[in-house]
Design a binder for these strands. Structure first.
Lengths: 150, 150
DNA sequence: CGATACGGTCAGGCGACCTGACCAAAACGG
DNA sequence: CCGTTTTGGTCAGGTCGCCTGACCGTATCG
C-alpha cells in the first residue's frame, strides 16, 4: 500500500515548495547586497561561466528566448555587472564580459547556494541528500550512462 | 567526497525542472479536454475539496491573495465549472460549489496526476519514489511528529 | 552570389501574480 | 448596545517574467 499521497497535486507540488523555499533563502541572502537585481537575473548564473558568451547562447542555456535574455542582460549591464564588447570573430555579435562587480555577485551567489545545501545536508544527512540528488537526476534525465552529470 | 553538484543553482534547480516536467505532463493531458483552462486554475485543486469553501479560504490555502483567487474562480464560474451561492451562515460570503462539469475536471486531474506518479514509480521503483516523497516532506516541513502527512 | 540562417534589438502582449481602495456585513470590546 | 475593527468580496491598476512578431545587418552555405 505504501505511503499515502493525500490530495491531488500535493505530492509533486512539494517539489515546487522545496524549490521555492531554497530560492527564497538565496534571494533574501543576496537581496540585501544587490537590491537592484530581480529574481530572474540569478537565472543567468545557473549555468557555468557567462563570461565570453553571446546573449543568444545564454538564452539557449537558460531555455528562454533571446529577447527575454536581452532584457536581463541589458539590466545587468545598466547596473554595472557586465559589459558587452564586440566579438572580434563575428561582427554581428557582442560578447558578455563580467565586470569585477559581476564576479563579486557570482561569488556571493555560489556562497548563498552553498548555505542552503549545508542546511539541507544538516537536516537530511549526507546520504539522503545524495539520494535526493540522484533521484532528481534520474527523473530529469540529467544523467549520462556512466552516471556522470551532464 | 560524495556527489559533485556542478554549476551554481543547477543542483536544486533540478527540483524545478522535475516539477515543470510533471506539471507539463498533467497540463498536456488535461489541456486537450479543457482548453479554456489556464495552468493556474489547476492550482485550485491542489488541496482537498474546494466545494463549500469561500474564495478567501481557497486563497489562503493556495497562498495567494483573495483578489488573485477571485479572478481564477470567476473564470471557472464563467466556464461552468462552479457556481457561487450565497452562504446562509454569512450574508457577506458566497460558497463555491462545483458543478458536474467541475467534478469531472477534478476527477480527470487526479487521474492525470496518477499517470505521472505511475510513470515515476516505473522509472524509480517503489522504494526510491517513497524516499523522494519522505525527503521532500522533511525539507518542506510537511510532516507531523508522528510522521503522518499534515 | 543569392538564399537562408543567425545575433541582436524594438515593440507589443499575456499570464500570474501583486497592492490599494472600497463596500457591506460580522464580530468584538467596552 | 453601539462604535470600532475585522473580514469576504470586488474593482482598478501595476509589476515581473516570460512570450511572439517584425526588423536589420552580418555570416554562411549551396
Amino acid at each position: 500500500m505504501s505511503t499515502e499521497y493525500s490530495s491531488p497535486g500535493r505530492w509533486f507540488g512539494l517539489l515546487r515548495v522545496a524549490f521555492d523555499q531554497a530560492m527564497a533563502a538565496v534571494e533574501t541572502e543576496l537581496g540585501r547586497r544587490y537590491p537592484e537585481l530581480r529574481p530572474a537575473h540569478l537565472q543567468l548564473f545557473r549555468f557555468g561561466g557567462i563570461d565570453g558568451l553571446h546573449t543568444s547562447e545564454l538564452a539557449a542555456h537558460a531555455g528562454i528566448t533571446k529577447q527575454s535574455m536581452h532584457e536581463l542582460v541589458t539590466h545587468l549591464e545598466r547596473h554595472g555587472y557586465l559589459t558587452r564588447a564586440p566579438d572580434p570573430a563575428d561582427s554581428r555579435a557582442r560578447l558578455v564580459r563580467l565586470t569585477a562587480k559581476g564576479r563579486r555577485l557570482e561569488k556571493d551567489l555560489v556562497r548563498a547556494i552553498d548555505v542552503v545545501r549545508d542546511d539541507w545536508r544538516e537536516r537530511l544527512g549526507e546520504e539522503r541528500l545524495d539520494a535526493l540528488w540522484s533521484i532528481l537526476q534520474e527523473l530529469t534525465g540529467e544523467v549520462t550512462p556512466g552516471g556522470r552529470t551532464r
